[in-house]
Structure formats: C-alpha cells, structure tokens
Amino acid sequence: MDTQSTLEKVLRGIAITAVILFFMFPIFWIFLMSFQTNETILRVPPSIVFEPTLTNYKALITGRLESTAGALEIEFMSNLFNSAYLSTMAVIVGLILGVPAAYAFGRLKFRGSEDIAFTLLSFRFAPPLLVLLPLTIYFQQIGLANTYFGLIWVYQLIVLPLILWIVRGYFEDIPADIEYAYRIAGHGFWATFRKIALPLAMPGIAAAGLLAFIFAWNNFIFALVLASADKQPVTVGALAFVTASGIQYGQIAAGIVLSILPTLALALYAQRYLVEGLSLGAVKG
C-alpha cells in the first residue's frame, strides 16, 4: 500500500512537472530571445547557447531602434505608461460602479434584475467590432476621441461586466443573517454594506480587480481605433517593431518581457492578498 502511494505521488509529480514545463517553455524561450539579435534568433537550427546582449532593452528604454534601414524612433516606454494608467483607472472606475451594483443584484431581488444583469454580461460577449463604428462617430461628435477619459469609459465594456458577475457571486455566498443581525442592531443599509459586506467579499473584489486589470491591459482593438500614438497602450505600440526592413523579433521579445512584468507583479501580490483575505474571513466566520 505504501509502495503504491509512493508511486502515485511520483507519477503525479512527474505529470505536474511536465505540464508546467509545457506551458512555461514559450515564456522561457521569449525571455531568451529578448537577449538575442535577429541573426541569432533566426538561425537554423535554434540554440539556447548564444552571446547575450542588452541591445533590445536599451532600444526600448531609450526609444531609439537601430535597424538595417536606419534609426527609428519608438515610444515604447510611453506606451507602457499608457497601459498602466488606462488599465488602473479603468479598474478603479469599474470597482466604484460595479461593486455596489453587484451588491444590489446579489441582495435586492427586484423584477427584471436577472434580465438586467444578463444584459450587462452580454456586453462582455459582444465582439468589439460591433460597437467600434458607432463609438468612433459618437466620440468624435462629443470630443472624447483620442482622450484618456474616453478610453477609460470604453474599457468599462471589458471590466465592468467581469467585476459585476464575479463580485455578485461573492455577495450571494455571504450569509444574509450576518447582515440582518447588524441591521437589527440599529445600523443602516450603507453602514452594513461598508462594514460587513465589503470586508467579507474583499477576496472576490481583489480577484475581480486583478482579472479586470489583465483583460484591460491586453486590450488591442479599442485603443487602435479610438486613440492616436501618444495615447495608445503597449499592445498597439508593439506594431512599431514591424518595420520596412523586417520584423524586430528581439525587440518584440524584450517588449513582451517588460509588458508582462506589471501584471505578473500584481498577480503575485494579489495571490498573497487573496490567501490572507480568505484566512481572515474564515476566522471571522
């Protein structure tokens, strides 16, 4: 029995290791590419043995890309800032609007609530091209085209339905008796929401905020159409690496590494926060 249990653990460990290597290898390969020149990347057969260089990162940070066709000015760091600003502000606005709405849908059952909630969720299912043309015309008429403010509101089509449905599920899982007891003690609706419901649902809010940030960060089509170069995020700015002289694979790889660092850091931080939040919630319960 012990031998069989040990064998199962070994096989499970091998299977988990194989799965991790399978999914992590592309990221590892891109990381290696970021330290190579185009000539090294395109050689056949490929090899993990090469002389590393920081040229790609230097080009991104300085904003000057050297190619066979000459020097090319790129605004990668500006695009990186745009991504961080747009995603952060979009998530903040989404949480301000979505968390109270999620609580209302989770606690206040009124006629048509499910239909309204599903309609909001359907915005997440709709392809962006469906709304791009009317949005472009509308934004040009009211002066929101090529503005951070306009992009942040458009990003609500991405983040708001996600926040609404994830957080709503957490509010519904909170026993209503806890809130009723707090209300009977003489506290109002807003105080109950702020001091009872919000702390208990904080793990769900954190998870929703993290996922919304990642989806907003990865958005491409909205910023491509509704913003010019000085407002575009890194997903659109990466098109600058496709030049007349060819595709700059090394700079693209370095750009991918730099662009995933903020979301990776946020994910690692939020993971620890979620564990702490769930532990505190279990103690309180």
Rank of each mutant, 00 (worst) to 15 (best):
E8F: 02
K9Y: 01
L11I: 13
R12A: 13
R12L: 07
R12C: 09
A15D: 03
I16E: 06
A18L: 14
I20H: 00
I20V: 12
F22S: 00
F22A: 05
F23I: 15
F25A: 09
F25W: 10
P26G: 08
L32G: 06
S34I: 07
F35L: 13
N38R: 07
N38V: 05
T40D: 13
P45C: 05
I48R: 04
V49T: 06
F50M: 03
L54V: 02
T55G: 08
Y57S: 06
R64L: 10
S78R: 15
S78L: 15
N79E: 03
L80V: 06
L80E: 06
F81H: 09
S87D: 10
A90H: 01
A90C: 02
V91W: 00
P100L: 08
A102E: 05
Y103A: 13
F105P: 02
G106Q: 03
G106V: 04
R107N: 09
R107E: 08
L108H: 08
L108I: 14
D115I: 15
I116D: 00
L121Y: 07
L121D: 08
F125T: 13
F125P: 01
L129V: 15
P134E: 03
F139K: 02
Q140D: 01
G143H: 08
L144F: 12
Y148H: 14
G150Q: 07
I152D: 08
L157F: 10
P161H: 04
L164K: 06
L164Y: 10
W165G: 06
F171P: 01
I174M: 01
A176T: 14
A176M: 12
A176W: 11
D177I: 11
E179D: 05
Y182E: 14
Y182P: 12
R183N: 05
A185E: 15
G186K: 07
F189K: 15
A197D: 12
L198S: 06
P199C: 02
I205S: 07
A206E: 05
A212W: 03
F213H: 01
F215W: 15
I221T: 09
A223V: 03
V225G: 06
L226R: 12
D230N: 09
V242K: 08
A244G: 09
S245Y: 02
A253Q: 03
A254I: 04
V257P: 04
I260V: 14
P262T: 03
T263Q: 09
A265V: 11
A265T: 06
L266G: 08
L266M: 14
A267C: 05
A267I: 11
A267H: 01
L268H: 08
Y273A: 11
Y273K: 07
L274C: 08
V275A: 06
E276H: 13
